[in-house]
Design a protein around this nucleic acid. Structure first.
Lengths: 335, 335
DNA sequence: AAAGCTTTTGTTATCGATAACAACATAACT
DNA sequence: AGTTATGTTGTTATCGATAACAAAAGCTTT
């Protein structure tokens, strides 16, 4: 019933071409000298039998799988697909396959994914925004030869990192607003324990300090990083402190919420209140008014992550910790 | 220098526990009877050596890799990440790993990806919206045991499909508008050769015919499925035919463009012109006014695709071609 | 023509697991 | 007691490739 598809093996090819399997192997891998005639014979046999070498068998003996694993918390989050695309692109070009695991924000799943990737003997691992604690993570990564962490700093011989310099970006954004004359600036931050929130808050405060200005602590709030939470927080801030002339948001979704809040309060953006987002997701340019925000090239980030991994796998010396600087994107909401 | 991490093998465990490798294998796979004492000895040895069986070696002999491949044209497109998440989720639960290939809309890459996945000996393959021609695709799929196509119909013994019933969805949307009294309805369609465009147009026309009404061919246009193209097309349609009271769009991005066009023309949505999108991407609910649109649960689609694949891999009989019916989501832009 | 290179090809062992079969001990049945 | 099950463990071959070494064939060289 089932069309069992008998894959041909290297022995089949060898028999067909009248040579040994090693000779076939040599032709395939272009290793060692082979005479043009045998090479041709082998090539013909390969074509005739539609032979494709098994990477599995090859991996077993070479101890290289030419595949890497990637673990991320939520591929539905618009921040990640582009990163994945970048990693995949770079991996492809280097001849590597990508195994993807979506942990659904669950640390247990993340842990299991890292273990499974160990079983598969991936050559390297890219982990984005891990939910695991430092020591748990470190223990899990131990058996892996090469690991790149995205937006997370851990120092270990087999680990490199790529991070977005959130503090720097936020400083850029706030400095811009200060330069435009804003002084009463609200900050709708993310979850207080999140790494990136902390960095962004640091940048926010630093921008004030550089100018010798003071931050009003009442203007700083924390929310979940969703539109609805941003909307509520902005509504409350703007109602309670009508003096606020600009809002800096943890991310673009929150900022879009803030736009909505302004609309409800009949405050014009940016005339009555300027709004600044962060991340430059696709929606940012389509919002009304379009969002000023901080952008990093996420595809580039993915590529960089893979490059780090490749260097680590190759044992090359490298700058272990890479920081990417966000760019300020000026649009309508905060000119 | 490099901390060569000597992975322990099944022989190490066997030696440590003082038994044969087969016994260890039996304990791991819970196959064949083993005495509680040896089982425990083996478990201890496994823990002590931190042993994890190599899936690669296992694959070689069992001829099962417990991994599947997924090929899609552009993971940056908001339509796909959720599908990937659904596939990954279902695969995870069934004990399968996912290899992801992003073809970047290039047929050549797609072709190479399918070939590479053959080398890796994946147990099955999910291909989304292939850019390849039917016969090319069929030839490439030949060596694969099990394949599920998303939004593409091909009949072959090793192929199953999952599709969104675009025609049905569009009929739903247009019927709704007709019921609301709209008669002059414009259709901003997608690329004329695209499968889904054709289906959606078919549904559009069918909705009219059911009511015994006639479609005005001048109201039908084709655009690239991006916001800017939608905006231009809507602007032109609404300017040239002021009688148009509703626009049905190929997808949400195009619809968002249409909203922008209406704004420029000082037409209120939905009072002066209603706008209907399609796909229900995240942006749809955040637009102003929020978009009425057609939704399918993309995560569910991904899950269904994997279920089909699993059935196919297991050789079970199954309904080969699955159609998912979109739901009409009524929001502000077309109440 | 024998020795010494190169070039080309073949042999055998191996990677880390499981399949298939064999073997032994113990318990159960006649 | 002898035969047959049943439970438990071990042996050997195998999956499909490459590593490492061995050997033959074709050239030079003296």
């Amino acid at each position: 019933m089932s069309k069992a598809n008998p894959k041909s093996t290297i022995s089949d090819v060898a028999k067909e071409a009248g040579v040994s399997t090693m000779t076939v192997s040599r032709v395939i891998n272009q290793k060692g000298p082979i005479s043009p005639e045998t090479a041709q014979k082998v090539q013909e046999a390969i074509k005739k039998l539609n032979y494709r070498p098994s990477k599995i068998a090859r991996s077993l003996i070479t101890n290289k799988s030419f595949s890497i694993g990637m673990v991320l918390p939520d591929i539905g989050n618009p921040f990640f697909p582009e990163i994945v695309a970048g990693v995949q692109e770079a991996a492809w070009e280097a001849g590597y396959s990508l195994m993807l695991y979506n942990s659904n924000e669950s640390p247990e799943r993340e842990q299991e994914a890292i273990r499974l990737l160990e079983d598969i003997r991936v050559d390297g691992l890219i982990i984005s925004s891990s939910r695991l604690l430092d020591d748990e993570l470190l223990k899990l990564l131990q058996p892996h030869v090469a690991v790149v962490l995205i937006n997370r700093l851990i120092t270990a011989p087999n680990v490199a990192t790529v991070r977005v310099d959130d503090a720097y970006g936020m400083m850029l954004a706030v400095s811009h607003l200060l330069k435009q004359g804003h002084r009463q600036i609200g900050f709708i931050g993310g979850p207080s324990r999140s790494y990136s929130h902390k960095a962004r808050e640091r940048g926010f405060i630093a921008a004030f300090e550089i100018q010798g200005l003071e931050v009003n602590p009442a203007y700083l709030v924390n929310v979940q990083p969703q539109e609805i939470d941003g909307q509520r927080a902005a509504y409350e801030l703007l109602t309670r402190y009508p003096a606020i002339s600009a809002l800096v948001c943890y991310n673009d979704l929150v900022a879009i919420g803030a736009l909505e809040a302004a609309r409800k309060l009949n405050k014009a953006v940016p005339k009555d209140v300027a709004v600044m987002g962060c991340d430059d997701i696709r929606m940012a340019s389509l919002a009304h008014p379009s969002l000023s925000t901080l952008a990093i090239d996420k595809r580039e980030l993915g590529k960089k992550a893979f490059e780090q991994l490749l260097a680590l796998m190759g044992g090359e010396g490298l700058e272990r910790h890479l920081d990417l600087k966000p760019k300020l994107v000026i649009r309508e909401s905060a000119p």
